[in-house]
Design a protein around this nucleic acid. Structure first.
Length: 468
DNA sequence: GACGTCTTTCCTGCTT
DNA sequence: CAAGCAGGAAAGACGT
């Protein structure tokens, strides 16, 4: 999904607030378009026109569902809908169920991710974003539906970490395409500089005396680092990548739509997934991590990093990356399993001495804090006065009266000294177990007192189940 | 009694 | 400046 979000590669490009503003025109679920963003609209490239449509993709799908149009129409719709009249409102618009009173301004985010960057960098220098961009390119070149590749399992790795990985490591991350990805990466690592030079020479045949030109292929790596590629090379690369990625999107959409989209279930799934993904990630940092597709691991230099890096618990993906970076070439299977587990955000299953999983403690059975909050969300006496849903589909809720909630929790535990500060500390321990997950910093939710149930929590998603 | 789970309590530092 | 957040550390309560 990163390509949806990371297209603004070369000028003219489009800023994030502009996307959101344009989308809000049709969804009615986001803040109004700012004046500066409006001015920027006129500078849109063809790529930029696609974004608002993608942001409103759930809407488009709904319309398609209603109209039963053909997949071929979908591509057309997507590429032109931004110029057409706004989509009619309906119940499944992004965050349409949210309380408009809670909207906060979308943070200004003018930063962009350069998806072409990996092409002009040594694979060993790739950041996390570059790895993802490269994988999309591999998927495109081999006509692999991108949704079939386990990109999220690679998304916490940078190039250096990948260089440390064995073929087996690749296979474990993606049993189907791992071997191919490995061979592609090796190929890429060895051919990268030569390819760059060749491309440059093809495009600049008369420029043989250019100081850019390395004297030998062995010099290329150093020179590539010392001398950034000429602007025209970057521009050409970006243009071709933009083209390729556009094709990838259309192919993938067509394929997905052809295969399964027009079943009720598929539409709902994609609809929900896109809705949540777009709302959760696109409007802020536009990272696969933030979309839940790439669980974590933006590179520290990523423009999204500061906004999206959750400041909770350990940084699993970073840990994994560090492991690959620092470990010898061979990694023990247990270490690798652990790193994969951490990467997948799977809760650690502690084991007894005999290796069997420990039995869960029963002493708090039915009396856990998150269960108390979940139940409070179902109780009219506390919802919405003490806690309330911000987004019942996504599991996002807000604590309205923090001290009252703490008092109620204290009453339940016979602890008159309970405070919200203590309660919130207990809440934060849930991040590690995925009972709670970080709330996407999209600007759609208030910044404080908002939490989101994660896969470790259950019984809250009644609404979601009812929709199925 | 050892050990595990799930808080609870206290704390410092940071952000909003 | 207040309120909230993040997370380390230690300890308590209770179950196995």
């Amino acid at each position: 999904m990163i390509f949806f979000t990371s297209f603004p590669l070369s000028p003219p490009s489009v800023s994030i607030p502009t996307f959101i503003g344009s989308c809000s025109a049709s969804t009615g679920a986001a803040p109004s378009l700012g004046a500066s963003a409006s001015a920027g609209v006129q500078q849109f490239s063809a790529f930029a026109d696609v974004y608002p449509s993608l942001m409103c993709f759930p809407d488009i799908l709904k319309q398609l569902q209603a109209a039963h149009c053909t997949p071929a129409t979908v591509t057309t719709t997507i590429s032109t809908s931004s110029q057409s009249t706004p989509a009619p409102p309906h119940e499944d618009v992004l965050r349409s169920h949210m309380n408009a009173a809670t909207f906060k301004p979308i943070p200004n985010n003018e930063k962009r991710v350069d998806l072409a960057r990996f092409r002009v960098k040594d694979p060993g220098e790739w950041l996390v974003d570059d790895v993802v961009a490269w994988m999309l390119d591999v998927a495109k070149r081999h006509s692999i539906p991108f949704e079939e590749m386990n990109m999220h399992r690679f998304a916490s790795l940078n190039g250096q970490a990948m260089l440390m990985m064995t073929e087996q490591n690749f296979m474990e991350k993606d049993p189907v395409w791992g071997r191919l990805i490995y061979s592609e990466f090796k190929k890429c690592a060895s051919n990268h500089e030569d390819t760059l030079i060749d491309d440059y020479m093809k495009n600049n045949p008369s420029d043989e005396d250019s100081p850019m030109r390395p004297s030998t292929s062995q010099d290329a790596p150093k020179l590539a680092l010392l001398h950034p590629p000429a602007p025209q090379i970057q521009s050409q690369l970006q243009q071709s990548l933009n083209q390729a990625l556009n094709q990838t999107i259309n192919q993938a959409l067509n394929q997905t739509l052809n295969q399964s989209l027009f079943t009720q279930h598929s539409i709902q799934t994609l609809n929900q997934s896109l809705a949540s993904s777009l709302a959760a990630g696109l409007s802020t940092g536009l990272s696969p991590m933030s979309l839940g597709l790439l669980p974590n691991g933006l590179s520290p230099s990523s423009p999204m990093f500061n906004q999206m890096q959750p400041k909770i618990s350990p940084q699993p993906a970073s840990n994994e990356m560090m492991k690959y970076q620092n470990a010898p070439a061979s990694i023990s299977s247990s270490e690798y399993e652990e790193s994969v587990r951490v990467h997948r955000h799977e809760p650690k299953i502690k084991k007894n001495k005999d290796g069997k999983p420990r039995k869960r403690s029963q002493h708090t059975k039915g009396n856990k804090l998150w269960e108390f909050i979940r139940d409070a969300l179902k109780d009219p006496s506390t919802c919405p006065s003490v806690v309330r849903w911000e987004d019942p589909v996504e599991g996002v809720f807000r604590i309205v009266e923090s001290e009252k909630l703490a008092r109620l929790w204290g009453e339940k535990k016979n602890n008159t000294k309970m405070t919200y500060e203590k309660l919130s500390r207990a809440m934060r321990t849930y991040y590690e177990k995925q009972i709670l997950v970080p709330v996407p910093k999209t600007g759609l939710y208030p910044k404080k007192l908002v939490y989101k149930f994660g896969p470790g929590a259950h019984g809250w998603d009644v609404i979601k189940h009812e929709r199925r």
